[in-house]
Design a protein around this nucleic acid. Sequence first.
DNA 1: AGGGGTTTCGTTAACGCTAACATAATTATA
DNA 2: TATAATTATGTTAGCGTTAACGAAACCCCT
Lengths: 333, 333
Amino acid sequence: MSIRTTMADVARESGVSLMTVSRVINGKVDVSEDTRQRVLEVIDRLDYRPSGIARSLATRRTGTIGLVMPDVSNPFFSDVARGVTTAAYREDYNVFLCSSEEDSHRELDLLHSLEEKRIDGLILCSSRLADEVLAAALANFPSAVLVNRRWRETGVGTVLADDETGARMLVAHLLHSGRRRIGLLAGPPMSHSGSARLRGYQRALATAGFSCEDALVQPCAPVVNGGLDAALTLLAAQPQIDALFCYNDLVAVGALQACARLGRRVPDDVAVAGFDDIPLAALMTPALTTCRVPRYELGVRATEVLLTQIDGRPGECCEVVVPVEMVVRASAP
Amino acid sequence: MSIRTTMADVARESGVSLMTVSRVINGKVDVSEDTRQRVLEVIDRLDYRPSGIARSLATRRTGTIGLVMPDVSNPFFSDVARGVTTAAYREDYNVFLCSSEEDSHRELDLLHSLEEKRIDGLILCSSRLADEVLAAALANFPSAVLVNRRWRETGVGTVLADDETGARMLVAHLLHSGRRRIGLLAGPPMSHSGSARLRGYQRALATAGFSCEDALVQPCAPVVNGGLDAALTLLAAQPQIDALFCYNDLVAVGALQACARLGRRVPDDVAVAGFDDIPLAALMTPALTTCRVPRYELGVRATEVLLTQIDGRPGECCEVVVPVEMVVRASAP
DNA sequence: AGGGGTTTCGTTAACGCTAACATAATTATA
DNA sequence: TATAATTATGTTAGCGTTAACGAAACCCCT
């Protein structure tokens, strides 16, 4: 494969001009059936594959989108990634995957690299960037969709799960089952899920006529070890806690481990609820009560919104909110 | 961001030629400190970002690699993906992610799309393609590394886990603990792990002086439901089975579910062993005995081999085998 | 038969960079 | 001091496509 065959080769070989070959490849109509067949035969024989690079330079479109997320190996994001790649594949787009490893400096760096690659659009998940930095970065992309981050500016699409409702349902459920000291292991405040789940927690308590104490809210990294550490800290400081509402299922798994280590029975002494309903949730012992977030669909919707934007019809429906569903299992019956 | 600023803008604005700007950007030495500073200042002021597309066309390198895998949301592959993106980021490469969803037609289609994108190299994980189809596809890439697939042809890198050794250790462990009728839930035969784990199973039995019965080997899709179905089938057909060696941890989880459904106690009636040691494995009840495969490292090594190849020094060390480690837990003590 | 419309194809000039060579200005060497 | 070597910059010609325009050949109608 040392030297690639080019369109000129195909043109020469089939005795037509460059443009005719180009037209055949792009399915333009003004080519006679005769020459079309002849050119296609040559293309096939030479195993010619057009250069997307050259085409991109000429058309100013790359057929490429960027996907940036804090951690591909987090089951939440890997499901989103699957949705994005699948929806992109359907429309003949390729996807640049970038995993920022929860590092906002790296996130910005990755965005710059995508800029140079001239992607047609960006899907940015759970950005950890501050508002003004994010605004500046987004301005350099022809179009963009944010997943799990609320954004006022027009021209930027937004796809969110209905986190607040989910959180309210879960906390209401905990209250309904008699829990009165509900701790919160809170997630990244920059993300929509982080702030909306906190808000849902607060509102559910307020609605039921309970006060919301800061001492019951513990910040927490959104992974198993984050949940373990935070739960150990919180349970030590507030031993009277009888329920833990966790930012996500991974954190809830950590909380389960903390309870085991402290000899607190789940759900008898402490009820535990997670969020997202990743596959793990149903498999834990006790199985996790949680809230199902359609992660794959989140990725698909984000891609659809983005491609719509790319195709020039932006405007309407720029903020998609997908519903969630409470799933009651043994950890908080 | 409607119309992008180009190198010509920077050149005009700073009163130098295109080449001087190009030299500054690419860190070439033959530019005086004076002009370098002046050009850099203009670049910064105009927020200029060079077009990777144009550069790629001129240099015939894209700074891009392709990553193709059967399923991004499988925790095994999402860890590999994290390794690849991280190693690529270090060397300023971007990664095209393609998830074939276990569909070989789609896999081939994705490879073609990557060809048009003119990637500098390909990392193909657990390809489901037949040998001759794969050979034809690989011929069109400047360089390639296969993960989890043995490949004879020179010029193609290969990264494998030492699956056979791992399988032998696990099966030997099962035998050592007194199990005598060990069923195998076998994985994709096209992949190295599929065939090598089968071989390890057979050899371990042979070494211990036991015969290997075909009736104890059940083909199985490499996911939880595949394991559930296959284990139900196998345990029904061969009720005397006292251990299940599973292709991977997801399959093992399915096997656990099957045992529960059939009222077989684990590990008392049936011991269950998985493979890979995905995070889930340690969290199951009972926790899974398994074999740790360094998935992240697999991705990193694959990328390093690939980038070495791209940089022109191929040859040596084209087949990397990474060691695995047995992890004994409650499901097969 | 001549004007206007289709169809089908070709020519030219970008797209935004860099490789390779050319040139001018400076410094070192004999 | 003349010449060669060095440093700093510019010029030209691609890289492999497509957009935009143009032109020939054919058809239809009056």
